[in-house]
Design a protein around this nucleic acid. Structure first.
Lengths: 134, 134
DNA sequence: TTAGATGCAAAGACTTTGCAGTTAA
DNA sequence: TTAACTGCAAAGTCTTTGCATCTAA
């Protein structure tokens, strides 16, 4: 456990727990310690992903995003607002069960599951504004 | 409608309808016409995606894959075998309905949905072999 | 005829890696 | 002490783009 790794851990997990890309995490890390290095960051993130502390997720940005919240809520999924790009985490027992059924029906055993829902903000439609826009 | 585009369309849709990466599609295209160009391929694929004829999907390869089968089955999802990497398409009405409920509960209107299930091959476990391995 | 498509090669974005120097235990 | 980590810069992979040329309609 070295200083550079501590910095990256802090940047990844001490926050309110938002998703981030490598570049965004790098920005956070530099605020903690100016010396932060991208190479070490990629290497550390890779270890965290392997260790299950961080999940790679595809938020449709064309870049890999990382999700630090699977420790607290291991079964959550993501809804992405196509208007404001906000990402909302949700969990649903019924869907999990259904996914397991489908998997077994197809002759497999579940390993991991992920759902992304892209959706439009009702609030924006109704009021012309939504949480993140403006 | 030019020859290069015809070649790419043929490569993308005339097959048994498997998923492919840009590079894989390029190989198919070159078999049809040796002159195929990657630049044109990316440009054409981009148009097809915009037009809804092709869907970008994340099969966890680290590269974007494309799915030509959303015209026939617009609501299908993917199960990816972690053993043999086979990709199986499935459709399930119940899940679709559930997803819509969740979306509305969160204050959104559904735009698009995608599910990826990673799973282990029962067949491999039982018989030591599966469809794609070997 | 001409707006739009093509192909090349160069550029870009993101990520990985070789290597010499540094450090935690 | 030493196996492991770091940081730099170079390299690698995938994708996009500028530009001169070509082509479908």
């Amino acid at each position: 456990m070295t200083r550079p790794r501590q910095v990256i851990l802090e940047a990844a997990f001490s926050d309110q727990g938002d998703h981030f890309t490598a570049e965004e995490l790098f920005e956070k890390a530099k605020k903690i310690d100016t010396n932060a290095s991208l190479a070490t960051l990629y290497r550390t993130v890779s270890l965290l992903v392997q260790g299950g502390l961080l999940h790679e997720i595809d938020l449709g940005k064309g870049v890999t995003s990382y999700d630090p919240n699977f420790i607290e809520s291991p079964h959550h999924n993501h809804l992405i607002c196509v208007d404001c790009s906000e990402v909302i985490e949700f969990e649903d027992q019924h869907i999990s069960v259904l996914e397991d059924c489908i998997t077994k029906r197809l002759g497999f055993s579940p390993a991991s599951k992920s759902i992304q829902i892209k959706a439009k903000c009702d609030k924006l439609r109704q009021t012309g504004a939504c949480a993140k826009l403006n």
